[in-house]
Computed example of a mutant assay.
Amino acid sequence: MASGASKSAAFMLLILNMGLYFLMIVIGSWAINHGIVRSRETAAILTIPARIFPIYFPMGNLATGFFIILSLLAGVVGFTSSITGLHNVFLWNAPNLHAAYASSLASLSLTLLSMGLMLMPSHSVST
Rank of each mutant, 00 (worst) to 15 (best):
M1W: 12
S3W: 09
G4F: 06
A5E: 13
S6K: 06
S6C: 06
K7H: 10
S8H: 11
A9H: 07
A10S: 11
M12F: 07
L13G: 10
L16I: 14
N17R: 01
M18A: 14
G19A: 15
L20P: 01
Y21E: 00
Y21R: 00
F22V: 13
F22A: 15
F22N: 07
L23M: 07
I27F: 14
G28K: 01
G28R: 01
G28H: 02
S29N: 07
A31C: 13
N33R: 04
H34G: 08
I36P: 00
I36A: 11
V37S: 06
R40W: 09
R40F: 11
E41P: 02
E41L: 05
L46Q: 09
L46D: 04
T47H: 11
P49D: 08
P49F: 03
R51V: 02
I52P: 03
F53P: 01
I55Y: 02
I55M: 09
Y56R: 09
F57K: 03
F57W: 14
L62T: 05
L62D: 11
A63Q: 06
T64W: 09
G65H: 07
F66R: 05
F66L: 08
I68Q: 03
I69Q: 08
S71F: 12
L73M: 11
G75C: 02
V76S: 06
V76L: 13
T80S: 11
T80G: 10
I83K: 04
G85T: 03
G85H: 02
L86D: 01
H87Q: 08
W92D: 14
N93Y: 15
P95C: 02
A100Y: 02
Y101A: 15
A102W: 15
S104R: 08
L105P: 03
L105Q: 10
A106F: 04
A106L: 14
A106W: 02
S107I: 04
S109E: 03
S109L: 12
L112A: 11
L112N: 06
L113C: 08
G116D: 02
G116H: 03
L117V: 12
L119C: 06
M120G: 05
M120W: 11
M120L: 14
P121N: 10
T127N: 14
T127I: 13
